[in-house]
Every structure is written in C-alpha cells, then in structure tokens.
C-alpha cells in the first residue's frame, strides 16, 4: 500500500477526573503517516502537548497487538473505529484521508464511568468474572489435556467464545449498554467444556446476578455488539447464555 502523510483535525473528549463535567477539545495534527497505528498518532500528539507544557491525553493501552483488551476509544461513532474485527491499537491511519475530522470519545455507559479523558473504569467486568467466570481446579500437577475427550464442534465454539478480550466495545455499542455479549462469551467458553460442567448452573446464575447488579441493560438482540466486537464474538453466544440461564433457573431447587 502506498505510503502517504495526512493532516487531521481531532475532536477529543477531555475530562480531568471522575467528577469533572468534561468536554471536547479540538487538536490539529500534521504529517501523520498512513503506517502509524491510531494510538501512535495519539503518542505523537501527546509528545507535542508535553513539550507545550499541556496535560497529555489519557487513554488506555497495553499490548498494542490486539489481544489485551485495554484500548477503548469510540472513534467517529463506532467503538474501535471503522475497521471490522479490529481493536483501536490495530487500527491504522490508512483508514483515514488527508483533511479528515476524527471525533474520539470514551466508552459511554453508567457502568463504565470515565476516570480521565478517554479512560473508563471497567472493573464491573472484573466483578462479573469474580462471580463465576472461572472453573475451580485442584492444585497439583497439570492434568493431561488430551485425556478428556471433547467434541470438535464444541471445542471450536468454546475457543471462539474464549477469544473475548473483555474490552467492553459490546457495551459501548449497545443502545441498552448491555454486557450480554461479554457475559455470554465467558459463559459459553466454559459451559461448552467438560471442565465447566460441575459449576455450569451456579456460574450462569451468579454472573447474570452480578451483571444486573452492575447496572448494565438488557439485550434486545439488535446485533450492534457483534458488529463492533474486535474478536467477532457471535450473537449466538447470547442465545446460548439465555438457554443456559433459563435451564439453570428452572432446574435450581429453590
């Protein structure tokens, strides 16, 4: 692909802290390479802001290779920007043209309060995982993985669900700020495997109870979450979650 440079106008959400009202500030950036990642463009802008003795823009990032789930920008009306199946860190500037205006906002949901600028507090996801998003394993030597037979189709579905990196784009995209795609990926990942079987019922009930407690909305099957998910987690997982939940609630004694 041809290399080119571009001048851009950025409209970025700035907010000093949790209690600040916040607002958009416009920045002009020059000579941005088409080969930069979106976050590298922010690095360049932040270097300049530091030189000008201004507060740099705070944003979440860690691995910068699309697997950690830390980056979380809502770019031009879409979580993680215009590319499908891509995290913000893997979005490259060749997605934009010279002269473009780019609006960058934090994830918006009551359950994801803004900490600073583009960083939101996603510990609500951690608490959902703590409620049941794991399997209980005795300590000791690792069990030989191949000793437990698993149906190929189930292993594939479980693996696809396990690809969820918990970035929260599903919540950011959903009109109801629903965390169902995230929870359904975690529930499906474990419910499809024999290791998840013993705690299958309590897991789904506890995780949904925690999800509701955190104030996420309900699912209306619009599919916006699936469309923006950088790991392309399928909406089918939500239907599986519904099935698991209904089954578990009916079968639970009291």
């Amino acid at each position: 692909m041809e290399h080119y440079t571009m001048n851009l106008t950025l409209k970025v959400w700035r907010q000093k802290n949790k209690n600040d009202r916040g607002g958009f500030i416009t920045y002009k950036v020059k000579d941005i390479s088409s080969e930069m990642s979106f976050l590298e463009m922010f690095d360049v802008l932040n270097e300049r802001l530091i030189e000008e003795s201004e507060e740099p823009i705070a944003f979440d990032h860690d691995c910068r290779e699309g697997i950690c789930g830390m980056c979380s920008m809502y770019i031009n009306g879409r979580p993680h920007g215009p590319w499908e199946g891509t995290t913000t860190c893997q979005l490259h500037m060749r997605a934009f043209k010279d002269g473009d205006t780019i609006v960058v906002e934090p994830w918006r949901a009551n359950s994801f309060p803004v900490i600073k600028d583009l960083i939101v507090d996603r510990t609500s996801f951690d608490r959902i995982i703590q409620a049941g998003g794991f399997i209980s394993v005795n300590t000791g030597n690792a069990v030989d993985g191949n000793s437990i037979p698993i149906e190929k189709a189930k292993a594939d579905d479980s693996f696809a669900a396990a690809a969820c990196i918990g970035c929260g784009a599903c919540v950011a995209a959903c009109k109801n700020s629903s965390a169902m795609l995230f929870v359904s990926a975690k529930v499906s990942h474990l419910a499809l495997l024999p290791q998840g079987e013993p705690e299958k019922k309590t897991r789904v009930l506890n995780m949904i109870a925690q999800m509701d407690k955190e104030g996420f909305g309900g699912c209306t099957n619009t599919g916006a979450c699936e469309a923006v998910c950088p790991k392309e987690i399928s909406l089918d997982n939500i239907a599986r979650l519904n099935q698991e939940f209904i089954g578990a609630s009916v079968k639970t004694g009291k």
């Binding site: 399997i135 005795n138 300590t139 474990l190 705690e199 309590t202 897991r203 009930l205």
Partner: peptide, 18 residues
Amino acid sequence: SVRALFLCPNLQISSTTM
C-alpha cells in the same frame, strides 16, 4: 489447552437461590 484460564481451589462458585 483444556486447562481453563483461571485456576482456583475446588468449586468456588457459591450456590445461589433462584
């Protein structure tokens, strides 16, 4: 690997009323 991502002592998920 069939070993899941989180290693915890036996059956940690508390049962719930429904």
